[in-house]
């Protein structure tokens, strides 16, 4: 029987047994082709968004009235100068998209990290201490969850002056409850496990148990899946820009590009659609990776 248990879940490559849960998830996800494809595309897009603007040597904000509504390269009349064409003010759409992508990625990543930290802390504390602490924290979480993200965001951003910091704050504020809930429930089940109880029996303090015993075991799986939220937050950023409560012009964001383009939809359809396609491609690569990580996590946690 011991042998049976030791030879454990077949899905885990033998060499990887013995490494931390985070490394195991990564290793298992790496074996999925979609993870690698997603990673490659994402890496390319990140590089492009970082290097592109200086390589192409064009300005994202410089207007060029003579070159308004220049079509992208694959349409008749397109030129290599403006690969994705220009908008109603003659600004180059490729540069604008790349900078928009950079901003979106930054906002998405920072806000996800923020909500992960805030939510995990609250979830850990609520799940570990239980009782009244849990009750109070969870009621707050419930209340926070009872406001749809968009409503909270448009309320705050709509009536105040939106800038990257407030946008990130709003996203963190809207996103943490989901993490608090998940971390709380795994903490509660982890808390009952014997190794945690064993540590309590030895006289370890609550902080020690939480940080040293529980957190390293439960947070990596949650953190990996948080990647999916980076994509969600990027969508929110685009929505804010579209409504006009995102980063303010002239800084390009996907939301404003799309919103600007709608006015010229019939004669210059590419202004809206092509940058959006780029965003969708980036989101898709993130989602492919996130999905693969999520599957790897589920396989591992179920196998244990």
């Amino acid at each position: 029987m011991i042998e049976e248990i030791a030879s454990g879940p077949a899905a885990i490559p033998a060499a990887k047994r013995g490494s931390s849960i985070g490394a195991q998830i990564l290793a298992l996800a790496w074996r999925a082709a979609d993870f690698r494809i997603g990673l490659a595309v994402l890496a390319f897009l990140i590089l492009a968004s970082l290097l592109g603007p200086s390589v192409l040597g064009l300005s994202a904000t410089k207007m060029d009235v003579a070159n308004r509504f220049a079509p992208p390269i694959f349409l008749e009349g397109g030129t290599w100068k403006h690969i994705l064409g220009t908008d109603q003010l003659g600004r180059d759409l490729l540069i604008r998209s790349l900078i928009g992508l950079r901003n979106a990625l930054l906002i998405g990543t920072i806000s996800t990290i923020g909500m992960f930290i805030l939510g995990s802390t609250i979830g850990l504390v609520a799940g570990y201490f239980g009782k009244t602490v849990d009750l109070v924290l969870m009621r707050i979480t419930d209340a926070q969850m009872a406001i749809p993200v968009i409503i909270l965001a448009i309320t705050i951003l709509g009536v105040s002056r939106p800038n990257p910091v407030t946008i990130i704050l709003v996203l963190v504020l809207a996103g943490w409850p989901a993490y608090a809930r998940v971390v709380r429930s795994v903490t509660m089940s982890e808390r009952r496990k014997e190794y945690v109880r064993a540590s309590t029996i030895l006289g370890a303090s609550s902080i020690r148990v939480m940080l040293q015993q529980i957190a390293p075991n439960i947070l990596p799986p949650v953190a990996f899946v948080a990647l999916l939220d980076v994509a969600r937050m990027m969508i929110f950023e685009a929505i804010f820009g579209f409504i006009g409560i995102g980063i303010q012009p002239p800084t390009p964001t996907f939301g404003t590009i799309i919103a600007d383009g709608t006015k010229y939809l019939l004669n210059a359809w590419w202004i809206t659609t092509i940058p959006g396609l780029l965003l969708a491609l980036c989101l898709c690569s993130i989602n492919l990776m996130g999905g693969a990580l999520e599957r790897a996590r589920n396989t591992l946690l179920r196998g244990q």
Binding site: I235, A238, F242, I258, T273, G276, A280, N287
Partner: peptide, 9 residues
Amino acid sequence: SLPNVWLGI
């Protein structure tokens, strides 16, 4: 991966 604002348009 399809942002709703874009998809709508």
